[in-house]
Amino acid sequence: MSEPSQTTAASGQATRQDKATSTKPAIEIIGMHKWYGDFHVLRDINLTVGDGERIVIAGPSGSGKSTLIRCVNRLEEHQEGQIIVNGVELTADLKRIDEVRREVGMVFQHFNLFPHLTILQNLTLAPIWVRGTPKAAAEATAMHYLERVKIPEQANKFPGQLSGGQQQRVAIARSLCMQPRIMLFDEPTSALDPEMVKEVLDVMISLAEEGMTMICVTHEMGFARQVADRVIFMDQGQIIEQNEPEQFFSNPQHERTKLFLSQILH
């Protein structure tokens, strides 16, 4: 499994290679805990994600999967332990938080496109105001990514005029326009009609094939099998088990994992 991932990482995304050395991990989480009031949501999370690695997080609802990836770009605050993203440790320091968020893209379950802006404006907003990209260049980049997600003809429409699958593809393109080094997916297909799931997964697969560092919280086990380098199983705020997809699905170690897999794989 590790061999093909290295070759794709080397062939694509040459620009990223000089930014980060492949030895340095993209994300390092060390002994992290999080509470909501008295409720202990995340317990002693230790996770290292290498550059170009694709990770799928699975687990029953309420197990803390979404909370975990939302901690990575500080949409949620952790109370104990360390989270280091691209060599920057997340603390209460706003400057560091902005620095991390610029390099980490996120795709939400409910898309969260800006309804008052056109698709093109949705895509150019952050590059113009955060990166200081000239408008013409930002629009060229935006059109490039709209073509990648196969909806360039929708550029001047508003989000409300698009189908769910199209909106989610726009949301992915919007994150990509910031040229992030890491992409987080928070159940990106859960709010979609069944016939639209594939078009979104196809975009995610092609992204994975180009060597993007990705963490996906998803129930799409076919996707996990096809692209993941590692599947992580969480329950009750803990990482119970992690393994290569082949091993994970065919030979789960933990009782809880076996039960979960028997429930979702029919």
Partner: peptide
């Protein structure tokens, strides 16, 4: 979700 989307794109609070 609008705030979260804007945050995750790196927009500062004023923007």
């Amino acid at each position: 979700g609008q705030t979260e989307a804007a945050q995750s794109l790196g927009l500062k609070e004023g923007d």
